[in-house]
Design a protein around this nucleic acid. Structure first.
Length: 297
DNA sequence: AACTTAGTCACCTACATTGA
DNA sequence: TCAATGTAGGTGACTAAGTT
């Protein structure tokens, strides 16, 4: 059974006249008769009652028409939606990212450049991002560390330093850079253990030869900042998060070990990416390449 | 009888599949 | 890779049957 047969049948059923239907479809009448005959042979029942040179939709035809009309409407709707998605102007990009300032900057910049493109943004854990990519719910996700997953491709586009934040009265507050091992005995304010940022900073501490003495675990970086101001401990913070802001604590560069993280924009290798999606990906990569000073690529 | 309409037949073309 | 083959969809010519 072919889509063409169904479309021809719908026209014949509506007009109940082969010649008029053929004219509307713009094919010769015999071709239409044969197509309808093939459809009927395929179904095993006649869809029309033939009475002389008149044809009339019969019970089978009416029942069949009732089923295929919404199906054909759905196909036409799908066709229109795909055309819409594939176009840049008015095209949609589905993205899972974080609220990191530099990403909100690039997203804002993209929208101002392409005001008709629509971005659908969600937040999710790394595991959920991978699931969403595989299910086709999103076009891209922004992650760190870069995903090492079968069938997923990515481009690293931003590398930033992870600094140490210390209270203003801390003994190292006047230093511009330190060795992380100097904080081996300090209390740490951390994100909860399941967060990738925490796993990364634990690895930094391990490289420095100690396990962090965690005195406080919070859900978000905003919570870390709140407790930093109380002076109960030190914390890891990404440098781009607070550029140019007076936060009531000091940010100190870590010289050793190498404390940096790299963000990647990732997508499913075999998934078709719309024009809008490809344009967005290229825009993100170009955006950070053009602003090396601000974002320390 | 002339016209109209649905169906049949022969043939052509395009395209997918298959096997060497 | 490419020729052979099968299938579907197309056309024009024609026939049969109903209508005017």
């Amino acid at each position: 059974m072919e889509l063409l047969q169904l479309q021809y049948f719908r026209t014949v059923a509506r007009l109940e006249h082969m010649t008029k239907a053929a004219e509307e479809i713009r094919i010769a009448q015999p071709a239409l008769s044969q197509t309808i005959a093939r459809l009927e042979a395929d179904l095993g029942v006649p869809l029309f009652d033939r009475n002389g040179r008149h044809i009339k939709l019969n019970g089978y035809g009416k029942a069949f028409l009732k089923k295929i009309e919404p199906a054909l409407a759905l196909i036409e709707e799908g066709r229109a939606e795909v055309a819409d998605l594939a176009g840049l102007e008015g095209g949609r990009v589905f993205l899972s990212t974080t609220t990191h300032k530099c990403f909100t900057d690039v997203i804002g910049s993209f929208i101002s450049r392409h005001p008709k493109a629509r971005l659908q943004i969600t937040q999710a854990s790394t595991l959920d991002k991978i699931k969403q990519l595989r299910s086709g719910d999103i076009d891209f996700c922004i992650t760190f560390p870069p995903l090492q997953e079968e069938g997923i491709e990515g481009i690293p586009f931003l590398t930033e330093n992870i600094n140490i934040a210390v209270p203003l009265a801390h003994r190292l507050a006047d230093r511009s850079n330190i060795d992380l091992s100097e904080l081996a005995d300090d209390p740490f304010i951390c994100i909860h253990a399941q967060n990738p940022f925490r796993q990364m900073t634990d690895a930094f501490c391990e490289q420095a030869g100690f396990a962090p003495n965690v005195v406080c675990e919070v859900d978000e970086l905003s919570g870390v900042i709140h407790f930093l101001r109380t002076g109960i401990g030190v914390a890891f913070l990404p440098e781009t998060l607070f550029e140019g802001q007076e936060m009531g604590f000091r940010l100190i560069r870590i010289e050793n070990p190498d404390c940096r993280r790299t963000y990647q924009i990732a997508w499913l290798k075999d998934r078709y990416l719309s024009v809008a999606a490809r344009t967005f990906r290229d825009y993100v990569v170009d955006y950070f390449q053009e602003q090396p000073k601000q974002y320390k690529i």
